[in-house]
Amino acid sequence: MSNRPPLLLFTVLCFGIAVLYLPMLVLIAYSFNASAMVNVWGGFSTHWYRELMHNDQILDAALLSLEIGVVASTLAVILGTLAAIALVRFRRFRGRFVLTALVNAPLVMPEIITGITQLLLFVAMFQLLSWPHRGYTTLVIAHVAFCTAYVTVTVQSRLRSADRSLEEAAMDLGSGPVRAFIDTTLPIIAPALLSGWLLSFTLSLDDLVISSFVSGPGASTLPMVIYSKVKLGVSPDVNALASLIIAVVGAGVLIAGTMMRRAERQRLLDMQMATR
């Protein structure tokens, strides 16, 4: 195969990338529009960003979303890593089939079905046990459930490729299995844990459908507030908010990605030095 990529292919690639990015760039441009009218350019202004700082509804929702995001992704990393270890390291155990199905199901299940079924369970549970109250608790539980799946898949592939000889060596030298795992394998799969956490965090921060179902009165996450504002019509402060989120997440992913790639390269170098 020639290395010269056909022009047609590259045209489509560039077109596709343009399509992916143009709407976001336009949105960011609109957010600096002094005019509240969407089709009139009233000059450059940071008015809508200042407006945002005084909108308590949005600030409260943002705080709630961030808090849920941090708690849910941390719990999801713990559960997801345990599930990944179980699936990769333990060849045979009772419940393996169920666990495999349950960590794969949320990846393909339409959110709306997950949301409805979880709400029905929470309502019934509350009748029986007076727990959980719909709101913060149910939001965290629901987010942990779908984030765990993503963490498991991320950690699983990393764990599969991890070399076990170091861990076995540590065990030969007298470490217990847990100690050996923590000392040797955990550092190797740490980047997967980090990307699993980041993925969970962004998914949690972005979730609208499941949250709308399982949340209760008084607990509105950021996407729920944005959705209800957008549904009512174009509001310029949503433009500012959206631009902020896109910029922060974009920068975060770029930085994390670069750092992880650098760490990976360093690790490979270290390994080469060690085996020389």
Binding site: I78, L79, G80, L82, A83, I85, A86, F90, F93, G95, V98, L99, L102, V103, A105, P106, T114, I116, T117, Q118, L120, L121, A124, I141, A142, V144, A145, T148, T152
Partner: peptide
């Protein structure tokens, strides 16, 4: 090993599988 298997398994059974059965 059940200390590793059970937490995720129980969590997902209670909050993902049972909801479907219940619906």
């Amino acid at each position: 090993r059940w200390l590793i298997i059970l937490p995720p398994l129980l969590f997902l059974v209670v909050f993902f599988l049972i909801p479907f059965a219940y619906s």
